[in-house]
Design a protein around this nucleic acid. Structure first.
Lengths: 225, 225
DNA sequence: CTACTGGATATTGGATCCAATTTACAATAG
DNA sequence: CTATTGTAAATTGGATCCAATATCCAGTAG
């Protein structure tokens, strides 16, 4: 067959304009750059990306399927917002899945992965720019999960995180969550390094549920304005 | 204000053509009418519904986001297929969530809901048309879950079920799964009626994992052709 | 002054048109 | 006869156009 050596990038699987727009919008929503309830004008987005509205509509359809935006017929798409109850449920869900996932991961985790996680935990603890906390936090946890051999579980976790990342950010930045997170991360990491799967799972669950309580009471307090 | 009495249906939230097509395709995939790997031609679908390809493309984009179809640029969409490992993981995932969900549901379940579940269990046990087993099975379980007060959990369970329903059908119809399911349903129902949440959860988990083992070994045996 | 009507404007959703890519197959060279 | 090239048909993805709906605002009746 072919005896040609060259870096062949698979053009067939290059991201389509719709993919690019989808990712950009998702990121903007997850990072909180697009606020809850903000409406997304197809025309506006289309001209930002220099395309027609067609790929924008595809991106919006996919975002809606993910639950990140909500559309009303002929009225348009807005960034979905979650009630306190919904947020609390999402945290409970995360605690369930992430506990399970880390339990499986720790049983087979490599030293290399542990080192990575440790690096993220330290970067997180050292970081002073509050805008980067959320991302480092997510990387730390994800690293501890990634060896679990359960891609579907990880995908679901990732989608759930996308939906609440905006709120989590508030918890870290505005409620002293960062100090507690540092301590709890250390505990989780230590359990993982000791290959104590059940302990890592229990600590992860407690970490998530603790963040949930802190966030919810913060939101309730805020509500009284 | 207005003092007019008439049944006002909210036209604004009527399903769009794209919604209708999405539902129809999802149903066809879930029910196994569209086989694994079968390709979905936009043109063909569009003419079946007497619309242009635009709403079809929206439906396909949403189905892809759900993981029910897979698209390759310029090649088209095919019904997604799952490897044995992926199927096994989905069952494991279901066992985790559905166990949790029934545990919460049983704690607050109403007599009315229990009666409904009982009716479905009996209909399932009595049904001789194998084409209806899967649906009754799903209704029975869903009824036992629905009081759990965790809509997001239920939605995730539903999406996971959609992805494996085709394979589950094979398990029920082709592996004597039906006989065992009858017995196990009775056990789960009894635990629910006794308001024994932990027992109901344990039995549900075992029910799901048992079906998984049975299905996987069936698929592996089948592979040798 | 207030509440309603009617029309202008903006926006979405679908149809049609067009470009780019894949696929099938015939023609041709070795 | 086999492998390769070139071309036609089929298909997707994006652009443009159009119809339907929502929103806004001015005008008008009470």
């Amino acid at each position: 067959m072919m005896a040609l050596k060259l870096k062949a990038t698979n053009l067939g699987s290059m991201p389509s304009p719709a993919d690019v727009i989808f990712d950009a919008l998702r990121e903007a929503i997850v990072e909180g750059e697009l606020k809850d309830g903000e409406t997304l004008r197809q025309d506006h987005i289309a001209s930002m990306f220099n395309v027609s509205r067609i790929p924008v509509r595809e991106a919006l359809a996919r975002l809606e399927e993910q639950g990140l935006v909500t559309t009303q017929r002929h009225k348009g798409a807005v960034v979905s917002s979650l009630s306190h109850e919904e947020i609390a449920e999402m945290f409970e869900f995360r605690a369930l899945i992430e506990g399970e996932v880390i339990r499986h991961a720790v049983r087979v985790i490599s030293d290399r992965t542990l080192a990575e996680a440790k690096a993220f935990a330290e970067a997180f603890a050292a970081e002073t720019d509050s805008g980067k906390w959320a991302q480092l936090n997510r990387l730390f946890h994800y690293t501890l999960y990634k060896d679990c051999g359960r891609p579907y579980h990880l995908q679901i976790v990732s989608k759930a995180l996308d939906k609440i990342a905006r709120y989590l950010r508030a918890q870290l930045v505005l409620t002293h969550g960062i100090a507690r997170a540092r301590i709890e991360h250390e505990g989780i990491l230590k359990a993982a390094m000791a290959r104590d799967a059940d302990e890592a799972a229990a600590l992860t669950r407690a970490h998530i549920l603790g963040a949930s309580r802190s966030l919810i009471s913060f939101l309730q307090a805020q509500e009284k304005d």
